[in-house]
C-alpha cells in the first residue's frame, strides 16, 4: 500500500527530508528576524511553522503536526498579522536615524556601540555551541533507534482523558481566562472609565 509517511520515514530518506526542511525553515526563521518589512516577516513565520510541522511528521507525531498547522501556521500567524496591520509602524526611519547618530560619534564610541550591539549575537552563538557540545558528548546508547509506528493518537487520547485529565481541565480554564483577559485588554476603554452621570455633567 502506498503511504507517504512510510516512504518519508524510511531511515535513508528521513535524514534527507530533515535537511530539506532545515534548508527551508532556517532561512525563513532568519528572515522573520531580519526582514525590514514586518508584515512580510509575519508571513515568513507561516513557512517556519509549516517546516516545524513537517518535522513533527518526520518524528511520527501526526496529531501534533496537524495541531501545529492549525494552531500556529493559521491561528497565531493570523492574529500576529492582524496585530501588525493594526499597529502600522514607522520603525525604519527610527533605526536609520539611530545609525546616523552613531556615525557622528568619535571612533572609539563607534567601536563600543558596535560591540554592544554584537553582544546578543555572542550570547545566542555561545548558547547554541554549548547545547551542541553537550549533545555531542552525551552517550546516547540505550536509544530505541527505529521506533516502530505505534498508533500515537490512541495513546494520547487515553492519557489525556485518564492520567492527564486534571492538567487538561486546567488548560481549558487557562484558555478561557486568556480569552477574557485578551478581550478586556484590547477593548476600547473610553466607555469604561466614564460614569454616565459624569458624562451628563460634562455636557
Amino acid at each position: 500500500m502506498f503511504n507517504v509517511l512510510d516512504i518519508v520515514s524510511a531511515p535513508q530518506t528521513e535524514m534527507m527530508m530533515l535537511y530539506i526542511i532545515a534548508i527551508i525553515a532556517v532561512p525563513f526563521a532568519v528572515g522573520v528576524i531580519f526582514d525590514k518589512n514586518v508584515i512580510r516577516s509575519g508571513f515568513l513565520l507561516i513557512g517556519v511553522f509549516g517546516g516545524i510541522s513537517a518535522i513533527f511528521l518526520l518524528l511520527k507525531a501526526p496529531f501534533l503536526a496537524l495541531a501545529q498547522l492549525m494552531i500556529y501556521a493559521v491561528g497565531i500567524t493570523l492574529v500576529v498579522v492582524i496585530a501588525l496591520m493594526l499597529t502600522s509602524t514607522q520603525l525604519n526611519s527610527e533605526i536609520a536615524s539611530e545609525e546616523q547618530d552613531i556615525e557622528n560619534e568619535p571612533a572609539i564610541m563607534q567601536l563600543m556601540d558596535k560591540t554592544k550591539r554584537a553582544f546578543p549575537f555572542l550570547v545566542a552563538w555561545l548558547s547554541f555551541l554549548t547545547i551542541y557540545l553537550s549533545l555531542r558528548t552525551e552517550g546516547w546508547m540505550p536509544l530505541n533507534k527505529a521506533a516502530e509506528g505505534v498508533d500515537n493518537l490512541e495513546t494520547i487520547g487515553t492519557a489525556l482523558t485518564t492520567s492527564y485529565s486534571l492538567p487538561f481541565e486546567f488548560a481549558s480554564v487557562l484558555l478561557l481566562a486568556a480569552l477574557i483577559g485578551a478581550i478586556m485588554l484590547a477593548k476600547a476603554q473610553t466607555s469604561v472609565d466614564l460614569d454616565p452621570s459624569e458624562v451628563q455633567n460634562q455636557e
Binding site: 525553515a25 526563521a29 516545524i52 546578543p120 545566542a124 547554541f128 547545547i131
Partner: peptide, 9 residues
Amino acid sequence: ALLFAIGMY
C-alpha cells in the same frame, strides 16, 4: 537548538 538561538537573538 539552532531555532532556539535564532529566536533568542
